[in-house]
Simulated scan of single mutants.
Amino acid sequence: MSKTAVFIWLSNVLADTSGHIAFKRAATIESDDEWHRWKAMLSSPPIWIGIFCFVLELFLWLALVSLVPLSLAALLAAFNIASVVLAAKWVYRETISPIRLAGIVCIVIGVALGSTGL
């Protein structure tokens, strides 16, 4: 895989993870009733940061699939799951159960093996 493709892939992971973290932040806004909560969420910076990150991720995905086979790009996209779980642990202090940790390890190993062509 070219250096450009690796850069685009890692940028995609960062954009996806940042978008999920921003949406979680927006979703935790509290209010007296649901209408005001949704109004506050939709007017908060995190929701717009999340939308920006996901739009950016779309364009990065298009760039990635223009450089590598779709089968490889889809495999690499699985890494996003692991990065979101780890970011949630770091940012929101979420618990990672042993079975979830084992899943992350399997994903990382699978991406590593699959991207080398073995």
Rank of each mutant, 00 (worst) to 15 (best):
A15D: 07
A82K: 11
V108D: 14
A73E: 07
T28K: 08
S43R: 09
A22R: 03
V108Y: 02
A74T: 12
F52T: 12
A73M: 12
S97A: 12
R37G: 10
V84K: 03
L101D: 06
T116F: 05
S43C: 09
V84H: 01
W61H: 06
I51M: 11
L70Q: 00
K3I: 04
L113G: 06
R37V: 00
T28A: 11
V111C: 04
A73T: 06
L62G: 09
V6D: 05
N12R: 14
A26G: 02
I109F: 13
L62S: 11
C106H: 11
S66T: 12
W38R: 14
A63M: 03
N12M: 09
G103D: 00
V13L: 12
W9G: 00
A87P: 08
P69M: 00
L58Y: 15
G117C: 01
L72V: 04
V13N: 01
P46I: 09
P98Q: 07
R25V: 10
I47C: 12
W9S: 01
W90C: 08
V85I: 13
M41P: 11
V91K: 13
D16M: 12
W35L: 13
W35M: 14
H20W: 15
G103L: 02
W38K: 09
A78T: 09
T95M: 13
R25M: 04
E30R: 13
F54E: 04
L64Y: 05
R37Y: 13
I96A: 07
I99A: 11
F7S: 12
D32E: 15
A82Y: 01
L76C: 14
D16W: 06
L75C: 02
A27M: 02
K89R: 13
D32S: 14
N12H: 14
R93E: 14
I49G: 02
I107H: 09
F79D: 01
T95D: 03
I49E: 03
R25A: 13
I109D: 11
C53H: 00
I109N: 02
A77F: 10
E30V: 11
L58S: 11
V105K: 00
L72H: 04
F59P: 08
R25C: 03
H20F: 12
G19Y: 02
I107K: 00
R93Q: 04
A82F: 00
A27F: 05
P69H: 11
V108M: 04
A78V: 00
L70K: 04
F59W: 05
L113E: 02
E94R: 15
